[in-house]
Amino acid sequence: MDFTLSTRPGRIGTVVEVVGEVDMSTTPQLRDRLHEVAQGGARVVVVDLTGVGFLDSSGVGALVVAYKDLRERGGWLGLAGVSRPVRSVLSITSVDRVIGIFDTVRDAEEASAAAT
């Protein structure tokens, strides 16, 4: 499966949609995109992982770095559409205790409004 990233305005903030496997070869693209979005002034970012079936430790690291970056700027990061295998990785690494995981982008956006 090809790896693609797209960025669009959400109802609240910015949505970064990820499709494909997030591994050592694709993580730099994800990390750079999340950094660009934060540098561009986004305060609320939802990463839509609906199209992601695999996430390795490098991808987890990129999400944590983006979370910290946004938090330092007074922003918020949430994950939406997380598949069972990806959710397992986030649970094993305890990232799910720090970064909010939501069923849909809409659910994440509603949670961000309450959190910010």
Results as ranks from 00 to 15, higher is better:
Ala113Trp: 09
Thr4Gly: 08
Gln29Thr: 11
Leu77Asn: 00
Arg71Thr: 15
Gly13Pro: 04
Val89Glu: 08
Val44Ser: 05
Val95Gly: 00
Glu110His: 08
Gly13Leu: 04
Asp2Thr: 11
Asp69Val: 15
Thr93Arg: 02
Leu70Glu: 08
Arg71Glu: 15
Gly10Trp: 00
Ser83Arg: 14
Ser6Asp: 15
Ser58Glu: 07
Asp103Trp: 04
Val98Lys: 00
Thr27His: 04
Thr104Ile: 09
Lys68Leu: 14
Glu17Asn: 08
Met1Asp: 10
Val47Phe: 01
Phe102Asn: 07
Thr26Pro: 09
Gly40Gln: 06
Gly13Cys: 07
Val65Ser: 12
Ala80Arg: 03
Val16Trp: 02
Ala113Val: 11
Ala38Phe: 02
Val18Asp: 02
Val82Arg: 05
Val37Thr: 12
Gly59Thr: 01
Gly78Ala: 14
Val46Arg: 00
Thr7Gly: 03
Leu55Gly: 01
Glu36His: 11
Ser58Gln: 09
Asp32Val: 08
Asp2Val: 11
Gly40Trp: 07
Gly75Trp: 05
Ala80Val: 03
Gly41Ile: 02
Pro9Met: 12
Trp76Lys: 04
Leu30Glu: 05
Val16Ser: 02
Thr93Asp: 00
Trp76Met: 04
Ser88Cys: 12
Leu5Thr: 06
Ala115Gln: 13
Val19Arg: 15
Tyr67Met: 11
Ala66Asp: 09
Gly61Asp: 07
Arg84Asp: 15
Val19Cys: 09
Glu36Gly: 09
Thr93Glu: 02
Ser25Gln: 13
Arg87Ser: 14
Ala113Gln: 12
